[in-house]
Simulated assay, not measured.
Amino acid sequence: MTTNNEQQTIKNWFDNTYAKRGESYLRPKEAYYIFAELLQLKSEKNFLDVACGLGRMLEISNEYGVNNYGIDLSEIAIAKAKKKLPTAVLLEANAEALPFNDTHFDYVTCLGSLERMIDKDKVLQEIKRVTKPEATLCFMVRNANSWRWIFTKKLLFTINRKGHQEAKTYEEWELLFQQNGLKVMQCIPDQWPIMKGLKLLSLGRFNGFKTKQKSATPLKFANEFIFILQKN
C-alpha cells in the first residue's frame, strides 16, 4: 500500500530535479522517435504519456498528429511542459489513479518510470482501464541484470532511494505484465545507447533515429528494455 510519505518523497525528488536540471535531465529529442515508430502512431488517435516529465515524448508524438495527454507526479515538470505544449492535456496526477475515463486511449507510453512507481500492479491496472481493447502500450524499464545496474548502482551503493530507483530482470518484468493481463508483443534493448554509438562512429551523420537498430549485447544484459504490449 502506497503511503503519502513515500509518494511525497518521490515527488519532492522529481520536483527538485526538474527545477535544477531541467532539460539536461532528459535524453535529447531525437531519442524519442523510436517509441513513436514502435507504436505506429496514427493521427487523430488519443495518446497518453504516463510520467511525462517535461513533455519530450509528447513533443515527438505531436509531430504525428495525435491528441496528446500527459500526467506526472511533479508539478514543476507539468508547469514546464505546459509552456512547450499548450494544446496538450497535461495534469499533475499519480499513475496509480489516472484522471481519465475508461477505454479512452489508443496508445500509452511509460518510459523509464514504471520501476520508480510504488504500486506497479495498480499502475498497470489503471493503464488497462483507460485504454481501448486494441490499444498498444510501450514501456521502457530498467534491467537488473545489466552491468550498469549491478556495478554502478548496487556495488557502488548509488541507487537513488529518494527517487525510488528499482530494476527487474526480463523474466520479472514479463511476469509482472502477464499477471496484469498484458501480452508482450515485442521486446528490444534500449535504442539510445546504440544510436549514440552509431552517431559517434559516423561523426554525427547518423540519422536513423526512427529505425530499430541491432545490438551486439544480448537482450538479457541490456541496460533497459523496451516492451511493446497489448491487452490479453
Rank of each mutant, 00 (worst) to 15 (best):
A88T: 11
A88K: 08
L90Q: 10
S113P: 14
L73K: 05
C110K: 04
I118T: 10
L85M: 09
P86W: 02
D72P: 02
D72W: 00
F105L: 03
T109N: 14
S74F: 10
A93W: 02
D106N: 15
A95M: 03
I71P: 11
G65L: 08
T103W: 00
P99Y: 04
D106V: 02
E75T: 05
V66A: 02
L114Y: 09
A77N: 06
N94P: 01
A79L: 08
N101G: 12
A93L: 03
E96A: 13
N68Q: 15
E115N: 15
N94W: 02
N68W: 09
A77Y: 04
M117S: 02
E75A: 11
K83P: 01
A81T: 07
V108N: 12
P86T: 09
A79R: 04
L114A: 04
F105M: 03
L98F: 00
S74K: 06
D119Q: 05
A97K: 08
S113D: 11
K80N: 13
A97N: 12
G112E: 12
N68T: 14
K120I: 08
D102K: 13
H104E: 13
P99C: 04
E75L: 00
I76P: 04
G70T: 06
Y64R: 10
L114Q: 03
G70K: 11
G112K: 04
Y107H: 13
A95P: 10
P99N: 11
G70M: 03
K83T: 12
